[in-house]
Simulated assay, not measured.
Amino acid sequence: MKDEHVILRLKRAISRDIYLGGAAVTGLQPLASELTVELDNLDKRRVSNIARSSDVIAFAPVMPMKLIEPLDVQDVAIPSAANVTWGIKAVGADQMSFTGNGIVVAVLDTGIDPAHAAFAGVELVQKDFTGEGDGDMHGHGTHCAGTIFGRNVNNTRIGVARGVTKALIGKVIGQNSGSSAGIVNAIQWASQNGAHVISMSLGIDFPGYVESLIDQGIPAALATSKALEAYRANVQLFEKMAQFIKVGSPFFQSTVLIAAAGNESRRDVNADFEIGVSPPAVSDGFISIAALGEDANGLFRIAPFSNTGAMISGPGVNVISARPGGGLTSMSGTSMATPHAAGVAALWAEKLRSSGNLNPLALTAKIIASGDSTNMEDGFDPFDVGTGMITAPKLIV
């Protein structure tokens, strides 16, 4: 039996020991360009051969990827006076002078509505990895992009990093979902095209993969076992891609990978109903984002749906942002917290760049250290929120 696999392969003879150790190699081209992402149908014999190939960094069965589906979606009326969304205030983006100017952000999602007023003046570089063509038939990608770098819409500030002038829009989720192969391809594309921040509000569809194997006539127990092995291999695949990008970053541009923790927890049903962070966010080299809401007293609390074990949190409940076709809509989810974090990451990248200190280690450290738990409700679990609410660099006057 053959299964479709995604294979990360080096184009030329760079020692895997050098790559895996992260050592500096004089004269290397950007390492993301040294990697090919291949698709191939492999049987057991060829899998064994691939595993022994000196030029193969990682490989894994292709698994379906899906959106971290938003909750509580509803249109928003036009406010009568100037307004700033609560998420912008919560991360402190309205109280500082950095705007994300000069920073390139990539949004790997359902595409974008490029004609929306929120993206006026932004150079949008679109690439379709689904075969459906550009555009956003879902609305999720447009909403996330609006939170990261959207301009004011209908008297409302929705964007964290409104000074971003170039964005890479990778359409990786279409009407028929997406795949881990498409995501890996898109990460490589974004890195090669200068992304400093890559935002992903998506995850592996493990139940869907098990179901597809059962539909092929594979017994349920064997299908579950195969899916678990594929899950493990895909986590490692994303880790290797992240590590590969990190090795090249000190010589070229700094790139951080930011991903949603997932919306599978159900604390509103049972306080112990908590699900761990889902891939790719759980992979080493990714910054995982949990979702926070705001109570009547202005204190932050973990959203009942937010998966546990994330590194840091962002505003993810009743988030107002751009809607395809114009206007605004409200959504909830770790999908909405992730673009807040990506926007703040762009602000930190600008600050570090202005002082000549922009590199992946420094940027990641600043992002994680910016978490603030002082405004959390009493009794919060640090494992739910990570370091706390992500915050922008302090005001410069």
Rank of each mutant, 00 (worst) to 15 (best):
M1W: 14
D3T: 15
L8I: 07
R9G: 05
I14N: 03
I14L: 11
S15C: 10
A24G: 13
V25C: 11
G27P: 13
T36W: 07
V37L: 09
E38K: 07
D40G: 11
V47Q: 04
I50H: 08
I50K: 08
A51C: 14
A51H: 12
V56Y: 08
K66G: 05
L67P: 05
E69G: 08
V73T: 09
Q74M: 15
I78P: 15
I78L: 14
I78V: 14
P79G: 03
N83D: 06
T85G: 08
V91I: 05
V91R: 00
T99C: 07
G100K: 06
I103P: 04
T110K: 07
G111D: 03
P114R: 02
H138C: 15
G139C: 12
G141P: 05
G146I: 01
G146M: 00
T147C: 02
F149W: 03
F149T: 00
V153I: 03
G159R: 04
G163E: 00
A167G: 05
L168T: 06
K171C: 03
A181E: 03
G182A: 09
A190D: 07
M200K: 02
D205P: 14
D205H: 08
P207G: 06
Q216T: 13
Q216L: 15
I218G: 10
A227Y: 04
A227Q: 04
Y231S: 01
Y231H: 10
Y231F: 13
V235M: 07
Q236I: 10
K240L: 08
Q243T: 07
I245C: 03
I245Y: 01
K246S: 09
G248S: 02
F251D: 07
Q253V: 11
L257N: 02
A261V: 03
N263T: 01
E264H: 11
E264P: 11
V269C: 13
A271H: 12
G285M: 03
F286V: 06
A291P: 12
L292F: 03
G293L: 11
D295C: 14
L299D: 12
R301T: 14
I302D: 05
P304K: 10
S306P: 14
A310V: 10
S313M: 12
I320A: 11
S321Q: 05
G325P: 14
G325N: 14
L328F: 13
M331V: 09
S332K: 02
A337K: 05
H340T: 06
A341T: 05
N357P: 09
L358C: 09
L363F: 06
A365I: 06
K366P: 08
I367D: 00
S373I: 03
S373G: 04
N375R: 09
D378K: 13
V397C: 15
